[in-house]
């Protein structure tokens, strides 16, 4: 019997495969393609205290080996989320990680407190790539003291385990990981998208209305593997790795770099069955290599 369970901050996942926030809605859309019961967890789209309309279009464009997005965190607000999306997920035997966004520390706290009495929210993932409107629109996640502060504030307002989702748009990812750990984070996840830009040379226009967008997809994978490796070696708390994962081989690479769990992001758009194929492929790999416990491969690369 091969053991595929992994545990993060006291929460046990039946396998390490999740999907990246924002690439899977609240699970409903992809439940037509995959059995959500097969996933380690469903990570929901970023949700704020009130509905956010998001950015103007075009919001997405294709780039070589990936895509850019500037959705602008459109979301229906925490009330609708708790009344519609969480009950939908209650029908499935999988863990639920709720991704949270906000424009001020108070926004985040409001969402986190609202989720405190929701038994269906197993963990919270805090997206610190949102612009901090109060502090001059720099992302919470790019400034160590802002990251430390928001982590502490959130930890003080919830009993649920907290994952801080780190942005790769920093000089020293190991330092940011350490800051999150020292401030009390139960786990970290990375990477969020890498800021990019595309210009339509025929029309002399930016491809995205927002001019810049976050890059994701297979083209960013080597950067993500490197950052997961550096971050996981800087901290003791578990790391959830993502960035361009398409196959079980990619997922295993992240785990060997140090990730306890992994997320499939934009590759869901390319292959809606990617998550379950990763679950199955990991099982095959473990069997082929005579590994009885998946935890043996976490951070195993010398």
């Amino acid at each position: 019997m091969i053991k595929t369970e992994v545990t993060i901050a006291g929460v046990t996942f039946k396998n390490p495969v999740m999907e990246g926030s924002g690439t899977f809605g609240s699970g409903m859309e992809y439940s037509e393609f995959v059995d959500l019961n097969r996933l380690g967890a469903v990570v929901t789209k970023g949700v704020a205290n009130v509905p956010w309309p998001g950015n103007p279009t075009p919001r997405v464009c294709e780039v070589y080996g990936g895509m850019l997005n500037a959705i602008g965190l459109q979301n229906p607000g925490i009330e609708v989320f708790c009344e519609r999306d969480l009950p939908f997920l209650s029908n499935y035997d999988t863990k639920v990680i709720v991704n949270v966004c906000g424009r001020s520390v108070e926004d985040y706290i409001e969402v986190v407190e609202r989720l405190s009495d929701e038994p269906r929210a197993d963990m919270l993932e805090i997206n610190v790539s949102c612009p901090n409107v109060k502090e001059g629109a720099i992302a919470f996640g790019t400034d160590p003291s802002a990251l430390s502060n928001i982590t502490k504030e959130i930890k003080a307002h919830t009993k649920k385990p907290v994952i801080m989702k780190l942005t790769p748009n920093v000089t020293n990812i190991a330092e940011m990981a350490k800051v999150a750990e020292d401030a009390g984070a139960d786990a970290i996840s990375l990477i969020n998208t890498i800021t990019g830009m595309k210009i339509d040379i025929e029309r002399r226009k930016f491809a995205l209305a927002n001019k810049t967008g976050g890059m994701s997809g297979p083209a960013i994978k080597p950067i993500a593997v490197r950052m997961v490796y550096q971050a996981s070696h800087a901290v003791k708390i578990p790391v959830i790795g993502m960035g361009g994962i398409a196959t079980a081989e990619d997922a295993i690479e992240f785990m060997m770099a140090g990730a306890t769990a992994v997320s499939v992001g934009m590759m869901n758009f390319v292959n809606p069955y990617a998550t379950v194929e990763c679950v199955e492929g990991i099982e095959d790999y473990l069997e082929r290599h005579g590994i009885t416990n998946i935890n043996e491969i976490i951070g195993c690369v010398e």
Partner: peptide
């Protein structure tokens, strides 16, 4: 411009006259 094509990524929105029953914003 679309990415997922199945309603998950919120990439392909149009502004609506009334609040949309799914998104709860005018999109």
């Amino acid at each position: 411009r679309m990415a997922c094509g199945v309603g998950a990524c919120l990439g392909c929105v149009v502004k609506t006259a009334h609040e949309d029953p799914h998104s709860h914003v005018k999109n």
